[in-house]
Computed example of a mutant assay.
Amino acid sequence: MLEALSKLEGSVLRCYIVHALQSGRKDKVVEFFGINGNDLLLKSSSDWTPWFAIPYLKNPSLDPQFRVYFSKEWYEALRLSLRNFFSEIFNVTHIL
Rank of each mutant, 00 (worst) to 15 (best):
V29K: 05
N38S: 10
W74C: 07
K58T: 07
I35E: 11
S81M: 06
T49Y: 00
F52H: 05
S44D: 13
N36Y: 14
Y69C: 06
L62H: 12
P64Q: 11
K28C: 10
S61P: 02
N38W: 02
F85N: 04
I35C: 07
N59K: 15
Y16K: 08
Y56Q: 07
Q65F: 04
L82P: 01
W51Q: 00
R79M: 03
S71Q: 15
Q22M: 15
D39W: 04
G37Q: 05
P64S: 13
S45H: 07
L13F: 09
V18Q: 04
E76Q: 13
G34N: 14
L13W: 04
S81H: 07
N84M: 14
S46Y: 03
E31D: 13
S44W: 10
V30I: 15
G34Q: 12
N38K: 07
L13P: 00
A77G: 05
L42T: 12
W48H: 02
E31T: 11
I35L: 14
K28L: 15
F66D: 05
D27N: 13
A77Y: 01
S81G: 11
R67D: 09
A20S: 14
V68S: 06
K26E: 07
K43W: 06
S71M: 11
P64W: 04
G24M: 08
V18A: 05
G24W: 04
E31A: 13
E73S: 13
K58E: 12
D27T: 08
W48Y: 04
P55C: 03
Y16N: 11
W51I: 01
V18D: 01
W48N: 02
L62E: 15
Y69W: 12
V18T: 08
K72W: 10
L42A: 12
G34I: 06
T49E: 03
T49A: 05
L62A: 14
P64T: 07
F70K: 09
G34R: 12
V18G: 06
R83E: 12
S81P: 00
S23Q: 13
I54G: 00
L13A: 13
L41M: 07
R25Q: 13
L78N: 08
S23M: 09
P50N: 08
